[in-house]
Nucleic acid binder design. Sequence first.
DNA 1: GCAAAGATTGTAATCGATTTCATATGCCGA
DNA 2: TCGGCATATGAAATCGATTACAATCTTTGC
Lengths: 340, 340
Amino acid sequence: MNQKPATISDVARAARVSTATVSRALSSPNLVSERTREAVLEAIRHTGYRVNLAARNLRMQRAGAILILVPNIGKPFYSGILAGISDGFAETDYAVLITDTESQPLKSGALAGFFSDGRVDGVISLDGGLHRNALRQCAEQGVAGRIVFLCEWVEAAEFPVVASDNAEGARLAIRHLHDLGHRKIAHVTGPEGNVLTVARRTGMLAERSRLRLAARDEWIIRGDFSLESGRDAAERILQMPERPTAVFCSADMVAFGLISRLQAGGVRVPEDISVVGFDDIEMSEYYVPALTTIRQDRHRLGRRAAELLISSLTHGAAPDPVSMFPVQLVIRDSTAPPPH
Amino acid sequence: MNQKPATISDVARAARVSTATVSRALSSPNLVSERTREAVLEAIRHTGYRVNLAARNLRMQRAGAILILVPNIGKPFYSGILAGISDGFAETDYAVLITDTESQPLKSGALAGFFSDGRVDGVISLDGGLHRNALRQCAEQGVAGRIVFLCEWVEAAEFPVVASDNAEGARLAIRHLHDLGHRKIAHVTGPEGNVLTVARRTGMLAERSRLRLAARDEWIIRGDFSLESGRDAAERILQMPERPTAVFCSADMVAFGLISRLQAGGVRVPEDISVVGFDDIEMSEYYVPALTTIRQDRHRLGRRAAELLISSLTHGAAPDPVSMFPVQLVIRDSTAPPPH
DNA sequence: GCAAAGATTGTAATCGATTTCATATGCCGA
DNA sequence: TCGGCATATGAAATCGATTACAATCTTTGC
């Protein structure tokens, strides 16, 4: 035990051939006679040889890994996405690295650095808050084609994006509330400067004015996709002289925080106030009340981003710069007609 | 643009020294005169050089990466743990790889393979269901010291373990319910064969008999840590002729599934039935009712496992084979005295 | 003033694979 | 029987770093 792993030379020696032949027997078997191929395979079995990826990657000038930038691994929203990405890379020999950009912010030059130190071949970023400079550096190094944005993106940057139709999601939410009879609808936004915040708020505002619904400034409440911001929004609402009858939240977690605080304040959901979330994370179905929300197909989004990246790594070009995925309204128990 | 990254030779040429000197200037500056060190640094700045990690790792006979085996990335429970692990590795130059053992089960020999193909230097496994064979292979290769179990573990295997005091957690839960006046306490277990299932159930049973509480076989309900299993358990309970007045769930997610279904069935929590969870995931505080549960310090667990692995990778030996972390009872709104 | 010790630096081997180029062999048709 | 071609294989260069060893130049002690 504790013996060093067998190398290609060990195999070559055992099979009485050169290392070149061993390599060929593995990567292009048709270049090798059947007899020697058998001998090589037997030697491999015997020695327990596995090709050393560091060596192979060095020689082949690739890193053999891709990196996922996640704003916060802790959020349940990302887990389904990560699973989808993993699935997408399952058949490849790429290793999947994950970095949390919140707990470990990228230092200046770090992103381009990942490429130039041979650590990664490609990047999937779930973080739309990357520095312009960092992206420019990547573009200058000619690795722009190896970066894919997922869910979030950077405005006016030339990287492929895989995302849900956020504006449509917001419209669906508002329309659903309108159909139930709601006319006074509030919205808890995401963090300022976030592209999703903008997309969802814009969609919400557009639909609200299209339907000629009441509009009050205080009904647009700033949040940040977190439970806490939902709770804070609830406190604001509890103190409003004229309360909305429904709230469209920019994320399910926000809705949970909101509902929890509303109920604690004696306001029932959905009897007194209806609530719609966004994302449809696993919990939403089991919340009390079960949450009406906008579903994003997280697994599919992740998978698609993986496929996109793989294809641009192997074929050099991204097939389509933007893929927008449909969202879906899932009606559960947190919405009902407004109190008359 | 699109130029290949600078190599050590480029730097050497620019600084008019040999590659050896460049390497030394970086790794052991005291071996190099100040003048040349300056020149080298200047050349590095000028060329934008970054050391190629594949090459360095190959030469230094290390992989530069560690692998985390997660049963299911999708579960919110793991996110805090992963963040803790990431933190633990933040100051090192190890890359952190993550694999989901549920969506992509390890093939036979895969674990040992990760080591022998130079892909990883160490492993943190959150999966206690690894095959004995896989572990034996690792031991035979002499890499046993580079595997750390976290939260879960494999019974009778000689690897270091970082985990919470699960039995104590179960005892705390039962004692709390007993203190509130409950005498008929049910338990939804984890999946059969899981070490956590055993630890928590054992602790629960021990405390129950110590306190001389009522015991009925049907009050031990098999689950699997999931929302769905909580829902199923609730359905069983709703049909019991003699219902328990309290339920201790083996995970918060189970508790959510359970409460959601109980309420739908007209049983109020905590007025009719009290519920205690296990884990204290972020959501628990914001559930309705806020969940009484056993807190595990997930971030700290993750961090500790990372530190343990790092230390055994650098110093060769694990300081202490088992570290058991204390748990904590967090009392919220899902528990109350039983209906008289 | 000279040998020994110390400080710097360069040359070349090495890590473990892949791949180019050259060589050896066998088979074919003329 | 011999040139030509396809097939099978090996020798050696290469990827980009680190490091053992050797070489040179300074400094120090007596």
